[in-house]
Computed example of a mutant assay.
Amino acid sequence: MIELAFPLVLLLLPLPLAVFYLLPPHRKQVPGTRFPFFRKIVVATGLTPSSGSVIFRRSILQMISAAAIWGLLVVALAQPEKVGDAIVVEKSARDIMLAIDLSGSMDQRDFPALDGSRTQRLEAVKAVVGKFISTREDDRVALIVFGTRAFVQAPFTEDLESLRALLDQTEVGMAGPHTALGDAIGLAIVTFQASEIEERLLIVLSDGGDTGSRMTPVNAASIASRYGIDILTIGVGDPEGSGDQRLDEKTLEAIAASAGGTYQFAGSEQALAQIYTRVAEQLPREVETQSYRPRQSLSHILLAAAALLGFLTVAFLQISTYRRREA
C-alpha cells in the first residue's frame, strides 16, 4: 500500500495553469532596425507583416514534458511512502530486581533440601531462584549480590539465560563476609532510577542481620518506597542462631513494611520454592504492546524520473534542431 505523507502538497498541481492564465506574459523591449525598402523585402519573402511583440510558442512535446515533470516534482514533495504490514512489538512493563546475600553465613550446610539431605544455603537459593528467573519471560530482571559491599551482578535484561549463568557463577564470600543489607537496597534504588518502567519489584533474600551498611536497611526501604519500589524480603537463616549467624526477622519485616511489601520465612528448599511459586503467580504476564508499519520513501524514484524525462526531452529537441539545420 502506498500513502502520501503530505497529501495537501498536491494542491500545487494546477499552479502553472494559474500562472499562465492570471499573469501577463513577460514583455521585453529590444532594439530594432528600420529598412527603407521594408515593403520590397515583404513582397520578396511573401510574408504578411503584423504589429506587436513576438511570443515564442512551445511544441506539444515541450508542453507534455513540462507538465509531466511538474507533476512528478509535486508528487515527490508530497512524499509517497510504501507502507508495509503492521509489526507488533511487545516489551516488558515490569522490572524485577533480585538481591542475593553472599555473606559468609550462606556457606552453612544446614539447609534442608528437597530430598531431605542438608545442603549449602547458597546452592539451594541458586537452584530455586534460577527456576524463578526462567518463569519471568516477559519481565526485565536484574541481579544484585551483597556481602560487605553490594554489587550489580547483572543489570536489567530480558536475556534470562545469561542472567541464570551469572547467578550460577556467584560464590559465598565473593562480595565480602559481612551483610550490608542497607547498602544493597540503596544500590537497587540507584539502579531502578535508570529505568522508565513504573512497575518495580525488589526481592531481597538474606540469612542474617545487617552488620555493615552505611545506611540502615529500614531507612533505605523508606526511600525505595518513595520511588515506587515494592520490596519482598525472604529470610533463609536460623532465627535461633547467635551473633552474625542469627536471622534478624524483625529487620526484614520492617524493611518489607516500610516499602509496602511482605516478609516470608523459608526454612527449607521446599518452602523457598513455594514462596517463589506464589510470587510468580502474583506477578501475571504484563507487557506493553506497540505496533508500527514500516515505511519506505519513494520520492527519490519520482525525482529520478523527472530528471530523466527532462534530459530526454532536451536531447530530443537538440537532435531535432540539428537535423533541421542539416536539411
Rank of each mutant, 00 (worst) to 15 (best):
V129F: 08
G71R: 05
M63L: 15
E137N: 08
S59V: 15
G104W: 11
A93D: 13
P155E: 09
T135C: 02
A175F: 07
P112T: 10
S105K: 06
A184S: 10
A188C: 11
L181G: 02
G186N: 13
A127K: 13
R140S: 02
L73F: 12
D85H: 13
A86M: 11
L98D: 01
A86R: 15
D115R: 07
V83R: 09
A99R: 12
V83G: 05
L114R: 12
G130F: 04
V145F: 07
A68K: 05
V128T: 09
G173I: 01
S134M: 02
A93R: 08
V172I: 13
A76Q: 04
R164W: 00
W70M: 04
S117R: 15
S103G: 04
L77S: 05
L160E: 00
D139V: 04
I185Q: 11
E171S: 12
I87A: 03
A165G: 13
G186A: 12
D115S: 11
L167F: 08
Q153V: 06
D107P: 04
S162Y: 08
A142W: 13
A175M: 07
W70Q: 06
P177A: 03
V152F: 08
F151D: 00
D85R: 15
L114M: 10
I64F: 13
L187K: 14
G173W: 11
L181K: 07
K131I: 03
F132I: 10
E123S: 15
L114S: 12
A93I: 03
S117P: 00
E158I: 12
L181H: 04
